[in-house]
Design a protein around this nucleic acid. Structure first.
Length: 355
DNA sequence: TAGCCGTGGCT
DNA sequence: TAGCCAAGGCT
């Protein structure tokens, strides 16, 4: 697609602004250098999927220190990697991250493919991530459309069609304004703009570097773009979690790879339904913590009732699992729901000790 | 294709 | 406070 006229001006103005105001982020090459490491770009892009820059920061630092190259990551132990990801959410990303690193190491000699198509074929790399890595790490011209770009473009051209029907038009418009040179900087500039100025709520149109070319700013409510469909209400569910303790250890299981919190260490638990099975996994003298652990997932909220019991040295719970030292529970890599459950047990323990 | 899949911060 | 939102991918 040719870039000309107004479209060329938009990219020029945005890049000029970016040259001065680009956010300094750990996964970005220093200004003026072309040293973007594909491994770090890919890792950051996966971590940033549906996740804020602030949340990613410490995880990116931890991962790149522990696994500096894609070969190091490919050689990682599955459980170690899942534990390192614990708390960041969307755990399929971590499973795909490992599968992708191993594919790059095994099938590509440890070198990331430098084309969108090649990247797109890797596990966990979709249209957005393939375009972003191709542009940012390899300087390819690629049309990079994430939620930021979607918002910026929808406003720039006052696209009134509701999402997701507007996506083809948004992508076409983004293609038109994407320059042949510096496509990676352009993509990052668009995302910076969406994150800091053209925000979802209360956009700072007064300081926007491309406000002169924005159609939405001429409307009564620029923030009304893009038009979004109504959201469905989130159902509430309940469940039961079981803290089984023996000799200073707690019984942890590994959840199935697919589904909620897939592949993560966890307490044994019921399903999350309106009428969860409250049958304990073994016979013991059970106590129940008064206050359920409240947790909100993407598509439902949960109240987890936490039960705890001690068992004898001869007792092993049914199913696969491991005894984990309670004083090192922080290293188990529990997802947030179960980390909170463990915390609730610890607090109850302390309260009882005072009585 | 629309539902599934985490978490924490902000308003 | 309850909902909204964040550099999406998979099925």
């Amino acid at each position: 697609m040719r870039v000309e006229g107004r479209d060329r001006k938009i990219a020029g103005d945005l890049l000029a602004h970016y040259d001065v105001h680009a956010r300094r982020l750990p996964w970005r090459a220093p200004p003026g250098s072309n040293a973007a490491d594909p491994y770090r770009v890919w890792l950051s892009e996966v971590m940033l999927q549906q996740t804020t820059v602030a949340a990613v920061g410490p995880y990116f630092a931890k991962f790149t220190e522990r696994w500096p190259t894609v070969q190091d990551l490919a050689a990682a132990d599955d459980a170690d990697l899942m534990a390192a990801w614990a708390g960041l959410g969307y755990y399929a990303r971590a499973r795909n991250l490992l599968a992708c690193a191993r594919a790059v190491a095994r099938d590509h000699g440890g070198i990331f493919p430098d084309s969108e198509d090649g990247l797109r074929a890797l596990p966990g790399v979709g249209a957005y991530t393939a375009a972003a890595v191709a542009a940012i790490a390899f300087g390819r011209r690629a049309v990079v459309v994430d939620a930021n770009v979607e918002r910026v473009v929808a406003r720039l051209f006052a696209i009134a069609t509701p999402l997701p029907a507007a996506r083809p038009a948004i992508r076409e418009a983004c293609d038109r304004i994407t320059p042949d040179a510096r496509a990676g900087d352009f993509a990052q500039a668009m995302m910076d703009l969406g994150a800091t100025i053209c925000t979802a709520r209360n956009p700072a149109c007064g300081i926007c570097p491309i406000r002169a070319d924005c159609a939405a700013i001429l409307t009564a409510d620029p923030a009304a773009f893009p038009v979004k469909p109504p959201k469905k209400t989130r159902p509430h569910r309940t469940g039961h979690g079981w803290w089984i303790e023996r000799d200073g250890n707690v019984w942890l299981i590994r959840r199935p790879d697919k589904g909620l919190l897939g592949g993560m260490r966890a307490l044994p638990s019921s399903d999350w339904s309106d009428a969860p099975d409250a049958t304990p996994p073994l016979r013991a003298h059970w106590s129940t913590i008064d206050e359920p652990v409240a947790h909100v997932f993407t598509h439902f909220s949960l109240a987890l009732r936490v039960h705890h019991a001690h068992v004898g040295a001869e007792m092993t719970p049914p199913g696969a699992g491991e005894w984990w030292p309670i004083d090192r529970i922080g290293e188990a890599g529990l997802p947030t729901l179960f980390a909170r459950a463990a915390d609730a047990v610890r607090k109850e323990r302390q309260a009882n000790a005072r009585n």
